[in-house]
Nucleic acid binder design. Sequence first.
RNA 1: GGCGACGUGGCCAAGCGGUAAGGCAAGGGUCUGCAAAACCCUGAUCACGAGUUCGAAUCUCGUCGUCGCCUCCA
Length: 466
Amino acid sequence: MALRVYNTLSRKKETFETLEEGKVSMYVCGPTVYDSAHVGHAMSSLVFDIIRRYLEFSGYEVRHVMNYTDVDDKIIERANHEGVDPIELAERYINQYDQHVKELNILPATVYPRATEEISRIVKMVQELGEAEYAYAVDGDVYFRVERDEDYGKLSGQKTEDMQAGARLEVDDRKESHMDFALWKSAKPGEPSWESPWGKGRPGWHIECSVMSMHHLGEQIDIHGGGNDLVFPHHENEIAQTESLTGKPFARYWMHNGMLRFAGEKMSKSIGNLITISDFLAENEADMLRLMVLSSNYRHPLTFSEDVIAQSKQALERMRAALRPAFSDAKGASAEKLQALKDQKQNTHNAFKEAMEDDFNTASALGSIFDLVRIINQARDAKAIDEELKPAQTEVRDLTSVLGLRLEHREVQSSEVNGFVELLVEIRERLREDKQWELTDLVRDKLAELGIVLEDTKDATSWRWK
RNA sequence: GGCGACGUGGCCAAGCGGUAAGGCAAGGGUCUGCAAAACCCUGAUCACGAGUUCGAAUCUCGUCGUCGCCUCCA
């Protein structure tokens, strides 16, 4: 089996071959930190975390870079509004995102570069582009000369002549062409700025990623990723800048995740139809969001809704149930059942890999895991003992952890609370022996109100947090 | 106007030419003091139309609908 990856550049799935055997360099565009991140940002980070985890599972050593854009118009605007320093504002939201990364069980990137820490290299690259006549300066601003880049538009399939000038932004007639984009912006009074050959200013949006990618990963990289809203202009422009300078293909595989939708539209800060990651995690487990992402194709839009959240919650519970121990009266399952268990373990393992190798088909991979879940539960029902269930359960744990699922219940337990619950369960078991059903049910109902679920079997009771 | 994606059972969703995975929900059972969980059973011909083919959800063309991008955007 060979891993196949959809490449936005060729619009096809291609066999995955890295620049260097056994190693993957991956650059993912991170958020612009002017406000709290929403679950759409989380989706993107989750998608690339899953991709990374699978690559590592496959034996690759992954060098993963995710940047923070920590200087831009919105950050400045917001900082002025709040009366704080823009750099500090960015710092605040970077820290918050770092925290979300932990909470969402996203593996930390190898490096988290920031635009403001790469200014000298950015200036250097802009200068070099100028020397090669790919850039020109006007009143302290520097623009990229799109016309000089003959294959401009190859990523997004746009032809420069078909693009509507000023569709959303006013046309700046100081530019040679409306297509030209800023590499360097002159500073207005009060804005954060750095010295440069063109006067005080700051980097344009696209140049930072070119510079940081080259600095941390080299002139050519294996995977460049981000949301598909970045295809044009951001990634198109990154290609233009980088390849014009190096003369080499920038990234081998351009990978883009679909947008998260909410109420029928793309979730975005400008529309305002967003759920922040903090809000989501206050009510739900991180695994639920991850399962939502896993349930659909990463390139397609995913609709966020209460229904889908509830469905993910239940599906997660089903997975956890498969990991529960044997029944207390287990005495060993039939040879036939054990063979079925063994077969399905192998089938699931193979099907999982096959699905993931096909451009990370996580929905199909999940399906294969659920097939094993059913067989495990059947075996348990057929009196399999723990040792018999163990290999298959370990397989479920292994595969779900490749997907980044924790499958643990929310950490509510202080040991004290656990002790009290166990005491209640123990007393209730005595009541059950005496068939005091009213009291028995009362305890169960009251605990349910506190978020604790009791499940009785003939002679034992297990409990868990809801 | 240009570029692109999508439309599969009540909901989410896989499928890439050979007669529809999986999850959620629902109904009926088994188990059980009851409940829950688990297990078993039940349900779709794939937006619409035409075409290619022995054969199409899967290929082609068209129609309708939804969405994304066209310099703020994960």
